[in-house]
Computed example of a mutant assay.
Amino acid sequence: MKKTTLKDVAERAGVSKATVSYILNNSNKPITEETKARVKKAMEELNYVPDLGAASLTNKTSKMIGVVIPQTEPGSQLMFHNSFYSEIISSIEYYARKIGYHILISGTNVDESYIKHIYERNLDAVIAIGVYPDEFFDQFKKIGIPAVLIDSYCKDEGFHNIRIDDELGGYLATKYMLDKHHKKVGFLSGKMKEDGVIKKRHEGYKRALSEYGIRYDKDLIFEGEVDFDSGIEIAERIVRDTIPVTGIVTTADVLAIGAIKGFHNKGKNVPADYSVVGFDDLEISKYITPGLTTIKQDIYGKGRLAVEILSRSLEDKSYPKQDIIIPFELIERESVRELQ
């Protein structure tokens, strides 16, 4: 079947091709509502689909937002092992689509330049999730397109920022465990990076221990990858090596769920033998047995806010920089036992 063209729509509506183009591109040309309605009806009748590539050349806009997902190390796989990313990306995609934009998801190594990618794809804006080297952020300043950073502690005031108070989150998760009379509390996380969310949550863990008069023990800090398998491996090692912990505070639900599985593999039970606290409140966390006690953050809301900020920045070049800290709460389920 022949593809409907701009000329076909113009002929059906009884207007010029230029008029149809003005309407499609939301031009400020003086066009009556009656003409707009006629053109819209013609497009519907002919099943006309605009050529986004041609529109991009005409308007110098691609209607594309780049979404950058971090990778743990150069050459490693994308971190889609953690459903935190699928939840936040689904939010970004939904709200971007509502304002007429599409998203382009990219994984970037810590040693990879992203500026070439932006130029090649003619991206209108970027959302970057996680921690990157300073050089990565310097690239955005050179191009001057709107950028929102999610879960970043980049100190440059030239970017929009969305995050939670991660230090407080780590503190409250640990305090909850200590309030249940656990004295040997381990900390299970991904690799700690300076000014990253994991490092902040670790600082909160240390603060809680200090307030309760408990000595910080490096042997109870377990760093791995932020994925299910790493949680399993570390939990199995805790049992195998009889490491003296009664509870574990994790920096991600996916690690906590892996740890529960690892303890089970070694014939141990959560919370009878070990208690576990997660972080994120992923959808799956309330479905597992036992239900996971965790720090609930508004993952979906982070994606929505990022798109809202970009939408305003694209409309108004002078839109002021936003630094938004989203509230969170501790969700109590069944994965922590109170000791006597």
Rank of each mutant, 00 (worst) to 15 (best):
residue 238 I to S: 14
residue 140 F to E: 03
residue 31 I to N: 15
residue 78 L to S: 12
residue 6 L to H: 07
residue 307 V to R: 11
residue 132 Y to N: 09
residue 305 L to A: 15
residue 186 G to N: 06
residue 81 H to S: 15
residue 321 K to V: 10
residue 116 K to C: 11
residue 63 K to T: 09
residue 229 D to F: 08
residue 290 P to G: 05
residue 137 F to T: 08
residue 335 S to N: 08
residue 219 D to H: 05
residue 282 L to W: 01
residue 281 D to Y: 08
residue 206 K to W: 02
residue 263 F to N: 02
residue 16 S to M: 02
residue 215 R to C: 10
residue 85 Y to K: 03
residue 186 G to H: 00
residue 98 K to P: 00
residue 228 F to I: 04
residue 212 Y to W: 15
residue 248 I to A: 00
residue 6 L to G: 06
residue 111 D to Y: 03
residue 239 V to Y: 09
residue 276 V to K: 06
residue 328 F to N: 04
residue 242 T to I: 02
residue 265 N to V: 02
residue 30 P to F: 13
residue 309 I to T: 09
residue 54 A to Q: 11
residue 155 K to T: 09
residue 303 G to C: 02
residue 327 P to F: 07
residue 193 K to V: 04
residue 31 I to A: 14
residue 251 T to N: 02
residue 153 Y to D: 11
residue 201 R to W: 09
residue 332 E to D: 13
residue 180 K to S: 07
residue 75 G to V: 12
residue 143 I to T: 12
residue 183 K to I: 04
residue 227 D to P: 07
residue 307 V to Q: 11
residue 27 S to Q: 06
residue 40 K to C: 08
residue 267 G to S: 01
residue 67 V to F: 01
residue 8 D to N: 06
residue 16 S to V: 03
residue 125 A to F: 01
residue 303 G to K: 01
residue 298 D to H: 07
residue 288 I to V: 05
residue 206 K to S: 03
residue 106 S to I: 07
residue 70 P to K: 03
residue 328 F to T: 00
residue 207 R to I: 10
residue 205 Y to S: 07
residue 232 I to V: 12
residue 104 L to R: 12
residue 183 K to H: 08
residue 136 F to R: 15
residue 110 V to S: 14
residue 69 I to P: 04
residue 53 G to Y: 01
residue 14 G to H: 07
residue 117 H to L: 13
residue 266 K to M: 13
residue 151 D to E: 15
residue 305 L to D: 15
residue 44 E to V: 07
residue 139 Q to K: 00
residue 323 D to S: 05
residue 96 A to S: 06
residue 274 Y to W: 02
residue 179 D to A: 10
residue 146 P to A: 14
residue 309 I to H: 10
residue 45 E to C: 10
residue 112 E to C: 01
residue 124 D to C: 10
residue 155 K to D: 11
residue 181 H to C: 09
residue 196 G to P: 04
residue 216 Y to I: 09
residue 277 V to G: 00
residue 200 K to W: 08
residue 62 S to Y: 05
residue 128 A to N: 11
residue 239 V to Q: 12
